[in-house]
Design a protein around this nucleic acid. Sequence first.
DNA 1: TGCGCATATAATAATATGCTTATATACTAA
DNA 2: TTAGTATATAAGCATATTATTATATGCGCA
Lengths: 114, 114
Amino acid sequence: MEKTIIELENAAQTLKLLGDKTRLTILGLVKDGECCVCEFVEVLQMSQPSISQHLRKLRDAGLVKEQRRGQWIFYSLNTSHTTYPIVQQILEQIPDQKEKLRALEDAGLRIQCC
Amino acid sequence: MEKTIIELENAAQTLKLLGDKTRLTILGLVKDGECCVCEFVEVLQMSQPSISQHLRKLRDAGLVKEQRRGQWIFYSLNTSHTTYPIVQQILEQIPDQKEKLRALEDAGLRIQCC
DNA sequence: TGCGCATATAATAATATGCTTATATACTAA
DNA sequence: TTAGTATATAAGCATATTATTATATGCGCA
């Protein structure tokens, strides 16, 4: 893998954002493809405003992109961000979060949009 | 490289610690070998108590080890920590911090212990 | 238009973080 | 023992962070 050197200050800012269980889970979820907000709310069992604020931080930092599609807003990894290489490597080393979505699905609890 | 899966909660705690410019620099410094506290103080241009408190956090989390040698205390990376693989990969992607030590040395400012 | 749903934003309160100053501890050397 | 140096710890304060509650925005549809 190509070795990328990232400015320490930028790296620290990104790591700070990843250093939160909620946000790290969110990134783990979008690793394999876009998710809509309601999925985060369901999987993380947190209030919608709280999720929304975490998403804003990730978006403001440029780590994720948002795309509105009708009533729903989908988030995905911004793979062109300077610190994406770091993010990517970290996400490879944590458990697959998609399991949680599948678990919900299997339990028939995916009653919402997605 | 062997792929290691690290619990999300542990990963988040580690990333939180790395998500600070001072601590990330400290880890960057010990990446290539142990450093004594006075080196951190010099390189980072911060008060000794402040450095000491950052070191305590890193030590409490198990990311670094300390070793007293006479009057001085040396810190080094704890390579056997669960999240070491993550730490290692991150440190490979930030600029070499040892440069800063060498710069001080060249400027004849390494008047202290080390 | 107006209603309902999904999501964002704002204001607030509780908690955590990081720095400073002051002090304690541990070691060395005289 | 005493003084001096290196480091750690404690207390206090300013700032940052996170969750909650209330409200606003944007879209689809009747």
